[in-house]
Design a protein around this nucleic acid. Sequence first.
DNA 1: ATTAAAATTTAGACAAATCTAAAAATATTT
DNA 2: AAATATTTTTAGATTTGTCTAAATTTTAAT
Lengths: 220, 220
Amino acid sequence: MNFTISEENYIKSIYHLQQQSGIVNTNSLAAQMQTRAASVTDMLKKLKNKKLLQYERYKGFKLSETGKKVALQVVRKHRLWEFFLVEKLKFDWDKVHAIAEELEHISSDELVQRLDNFLGNPSFDPHGDPIPDKNGRIPTINQQNLTNIPLKKTVTVSSVGNQAPQMLEMLKHYNIALGTQVSVLNKFEFDGSLQIKILKQNPCIISEQVAKNIFVHYAE
Amino acid sequence: MNFTISEENYIKSIYHLQQQSGIVNTNSLAAQMQTRAASVTDMLKKLKNKKLLQYERYKGFKLSETGKKVALQVVRKHRLWEFFLVEKLKFDWDKVHAIAEELEHISSDELVQRLDNFLGNPSFDPHGDPIPDKNGRIPTINQQNLTNIPLKKTVTVSSVGNQAPQMLEMLKHYNIALGTQVSVLNKFEFDGSLQIKILKQNPCIISEQVAKNIFVHYAE
DNA sequence: ATTAAAATTTAGACAAATCTAAAAATATTT
DNA sequence: AAATATTTTTAGATTTGTCTAAATTTTAAT
Ligand SMILES: [Mn+2]
Ligand SMILES: [Mn+2]
Ligand SMILES: [Mn+2]
Ligand SMILES: [Mn+2]
């Protein structure tokens, strides 16, 4: 089956929201999609008709199994294109999301498969998010939040939570990228901020807000 | 200014049609776009309002200077993406048109420029058509139709006229691609067919219809 | 110069995706 | 439990792009 760009965007947003909360409600989806609740309700009816959604009015909703499959293919395309933009076209990681938001709707399945191979079948996108394979399977990572790492342990940055351009720009200033090695020197009770040591740099302090969006794994 | 996918498709089609005939009429555009004349008229009004078109009702139409610029940027994107699909993703040249028809509408200017550089600033697409540069300038080629080449002269295939999948598939069977060296051994008066010799192959005969769609230049 | 044919435009309708404003259902507070 | 607030849905419009059928204009043929 084939879906419109708008349907695909809705499906993908619902997928991301239900990952966190299990079930999704109208207002939060409207916020995510930057649209009005009334527009969301209209689309929910369409998606329900197409059997992509479990939805009863006033009760919230979540994707059906079919809907989840569609979502995973869109996510796959989004992340593969982001990888292409950063690795091949040398875009900064904070500039690729908007472009991938368009590219993810190119429909050819063969294109996706060839792109995947061309890129060397990557497992993670430039923000550290896992890339579903063509069957929708998602590689798992054993990662933890930086706020939970014991002092002086050296760990490697593996992904970022909040991926707003403002956040990514900030990490660029701190010189933190995926793969960067860090250790936590100190935890300040007062505001939850962390003093960290980045490999080959002087120690610096990051706010709790930033630290909560940095995920890491222990170096191999 | 930004245009819808539909507007861009219309603009590009008008551009191609007026290349041949100078001025375009409603029915030929409707045929090209696989839509109805009434739909064309509706769109012509919109494009005229946006100053992209010189148009008076019942009198035919052609692109304004602005319209031509827009068309050339869409053509540029289409042909760059085709080049990418064939050179990087190893698609056959008869499979890329439909996909490029979608990719040409991705809006980021920076993407186009980076893609161009990544591909090595190619001058011609996989079908031998020139790729406009970012200012809309088109590289010229000194090419002639295969039917006009004197006998026994060796020439190089540089582009194909009719690019329907059926035509491209046929050339694949004949083992004719861009860059292939051929010479004309014989011209048959009866049906205009040509006996040709392709480098490293036995002589074969192609119909006048096919020959008229093969363009060549003299080898350097 | 009429008439017939072809090309083009208009009139009116429809589907998709959006919006505002109002109504209905649900949740929260007193 | 009743009143109030919040969330969600409906009603009705709007924009974009398309269509069919009918009307108009231009072109070609008698
Ligand atoms: Mn998108
Ligand atoms: Mn990403
Ligand atoms: Mn197109
Ligand atoms: Mn081409």
